[in-house]
Amino acid sequence: MERAALIGSSLCYLFALGHTLFSLFKGRFRPGRFNVAAIAAGAALQGWYLTLLGSQLHACPIRNLPQVLVFLGWSMALFYLAIGPSYRLSLMGAFTAPVVLILQGAAMVLPTEPLEAVRGVDPWIETHASLSLVAYGALGLSCIAGLMYLVQERQLKSRRPSAIFHDLPPVATLAATVRRLLLAGFVVLSVSFAAGFLALTPIPKVKICFSALIWLLYAGLLVDSWSGRLGNRRTAQGAILVFLLALLLLPVIQRLSTLG
């Protein structure tokens, strides 16, 4: 049943992506409800999958890398649903859907262990881990908004903008979205770290160091961006690079957590 929910959710994201690409190639892309509905259905099925897993584990379903990747994709989809339609960033769905698909594809390919109920769950560790992934959902979406900013900026600076130029949102909107998502992600990440410090379970020092590095990078990016030291382009580049670094470190942190 869980597997079916996961496959169903992947198909929804595939539909969203396929529909957008088809519309863009036909030159008929209109910010419509189809993409939002497909992504909402995908997120609902992901939520169902995670609920089924959670009820079997009696814990938050982020015990291994595949589960973490699905949870991360789910957070990103939820943040997109929260901000995409209201800020008229419908095309963001076209950028979000493939990222979530890749995360989910990796989750389905990676080997998993049989599910067993977890004993002696530390609620602070659960809060820390799940909030961290919610934060990475927002930061992942800021990376996507950053990518959209760079694409649109390039279009605007070129003398021959391509067809996608007409469908992408204004750079000012994208720059504001990057900053807001960075801020939202950073606040949730900070709360998750505070919860981690309250946990009784010892956390490996290397993991603390990696996490602190990401937190510091995001803090620096935010301070420089809000103070005006970093322009919109650099902020967008920073949002992309720091998230990619965090994504690369995720398996390492996950491995260290398992060892811990």
């Binding site: 649109q152 605007l156 992408l168 204004p170 750079v171 000012a172 909107t173």
Partner: peptide
């Protein structure tokens, strides 16, 4: 006008 809208909204 279109370029301005794509820059500023």
């Amino acid at each position: 006008v279109e370029l301005a809208e794509k820059i500023f909204g």
